[in-house]
Simulated scan of single mutants.
Amino acid sequence: MRLILLFAVFLVLGLAFESAVPHMVSFRALIPNLIIILVVDLGLRHHGVLPAMLAFAMGYATDALAGSHPGLNAFMMTMVFVVSYEISTRLMVTNALVGATVVFFGVIATALATVALADGFSAHSHTGALLPGLTLEAAISAIVAPFIFSMLAASKRMTGLPVRPMRE
């Protein structure tokens, strides 16, 4: 229950940030994808059915606020969770660098999959024009990720949740 409440608070703050800041900053690529950072933390540090359901719920909440295709963000957040979960089970130590790398590629994969599905896997896709801004957004998200991970770790310690998976 504490895990649900903690990630619900961070989800609401992240969605509020991602919804409000584009009105203040004209270049969307400068805004990090905080929801993917939360999902990667879930995948790297919390294993089981509940974290997977939380990742799906975070994607679904993103769909409710900004989804152009219903269910797409829910699907992509679940896939990012599964990939980060698999990475955490294969590596001996999952640190902030591993998390930032997964965030970087998660942002890129999520955006490219969204564009591919929106264009219907067309041969005339516009992904080439999106790549510079997308790479910048992924890099900024990866830079911000260790700070969010540390804020989550501090919040987990305060609530009595485990900061690392049991095997570490």
Rank of each mutant, 00 (worst) to 15 (best):
A109Y: 10
L6M: 14
G99C: 09
G120K: 03
M76C: 15
P22M: 07
L65S: 08
L6P: 02
I31R: 03
L54E: 06
F149E: 10
D119H: 12
F149T: 06
P70E: 00
S68K: 00
S122C: 03
P32F: 07
I36P: 02
I36R: 04
A16T: 10
M24K: 03
T94M: 10
A142K: 09
L152A: 10
I37Q: 08
F10G: 01
V93P: 01
E137G: 14
T110W: 14
M53L: 15
L161Q: 09
L131T: 02
P22N: 09
R157G: 01
A109Q: 05
V49R: 14
H124Y: 09
A66H: 14
L3Q: 06
L130T: 01
L30G: 07
G67L: 01
L134T: 11
I36W: 04
L65I: 11
H46L: 12
M24Q: 11
L3P: 05
H47K: 12
T159M: 15
V82S: 00
T101K: 04
I108A: 06
T114I: 11
A138K: 05
M166R: 09
H69E: 13
S150K: 12
H69G: 02
E18F: 00
D63W: 08
I31W: 02
A153F: 10
V21H: 05
L44I: 04
L152N: 06
L54G: 03
A8P: 04
I36L: 15
S150I: 03
H69M: 14
G14E: 05
L6D: 04
Y85D: 13
V102H: 08
I37D: 11
M76T: 15
A20S: 10
E137F: 07
F10C: 00
P132T: 02
T114Y: 12
F17N: 02
L5C: 10
H23K: 12
V98S: 03
L42F: 06
E18T: 06
L13H: 00
A8S: 15
F81Y: 14
F121E: 05
L38Y: 07
A29L: 02
M92Y: 11
S141K: 03
F56I: 13
M166Q: 08
A139G: 12
H126N: 09
S19C: 00
P165R: 14
M151W: 14
L152E: 05
L44S: 04
L13C: 07
N33P: 05
A153S: 15
T135S: 13
M92F: 09
S88F: 03
T78F: 15
V93C: 08
T89M: 11
L91T: 01
M77F: 12
K156I: 04
I4D: 02
G43F: 11
A109F: 12
P22D: 02
N33G: 10
A139I: 10
A96R: 10
V163R: 05
S68I: 00
L30C: 04
K156T: 10
L152Y: 07
A109W: 05
M158K: 14
F56Q: 10
H47G: 07
L65W: 12
L38K: 12
L54A: 06
V107Y: 08
L5K: 11
